[in-house]
Simulated assay, not measured.
Amino acid sequence: MSEHPDRAAPSPRPYIRQDRDACLALFDGNVPRFFALSERADFARFLDRPSSDGTYLVLEREGRVVACGGFGVSADGATGELCWGMVDRTYHGQGLGRALTEARLRVAATKPGLRRIRLDTSQHTQGFYARFGFRTLSVTPDGYGPGLDRWDMILEF
Rank of each mutant, 00 (worst) to 15 (best):
H4T: 15
P12M: 15
P14S: 07
Y15M: 00
Y15K: 02
Y15F: 15
R17A: 14
R20Y: 02
R20A: 06
R20K: 01
D21T: 10
A22V: 02
L26S: 07
L26W: 02
G29M: 01
P32I: 05
P32W: 10
P32D: 09
R33A: 08
L37W: 06
E39D: 04
R40A: 04
R40H: 06
A41P: 02
F43M: 04
F43C: 04
R45Q: 11
R45W: 09
R45M: 07
D48E: 14
R49Y: 12
R49N: 05
P50N: 14
S51C: 07
G54D: 10
L57W: 06
L57E: 03
G63N: 05
R64M: 09
V65M: 00
V66S: 00
C68W: 00
C68S: 10
F71T: 07
G72I: 15
T79E: 11
T79A: 08
L82A: 05
G85Y: 03
G85F: 02
G85A: 15
M86E: 01
V87I: 15
V87A: 12
D88G: 02
D88W: 00
T90H: 11
Y91T: 11
H92G: 04
G93P: 09
G95E: 01
L96I: 12
L96C: 12
G97C: 12
R98S: 10
A103L: 03
L105Y: 12
A108G: 11
K111C: 08
P112M: 15
P112W: 06
L119C: 07
L119A: 01
L119R: 02
D120A: 14
D120R: 04
D120W: 01
S122W: 05
S122I: 09
Q126S: 15
G127M: 13
F132W: 14
F134I: 01
F134T: 08
L137I: 14
T140M: 13
D142S: 15
D142R: 14
G143V: 13
G145T: 10
P146C: 14
G147F: 10
L148V: 08
W151L: 06
D152E: 15
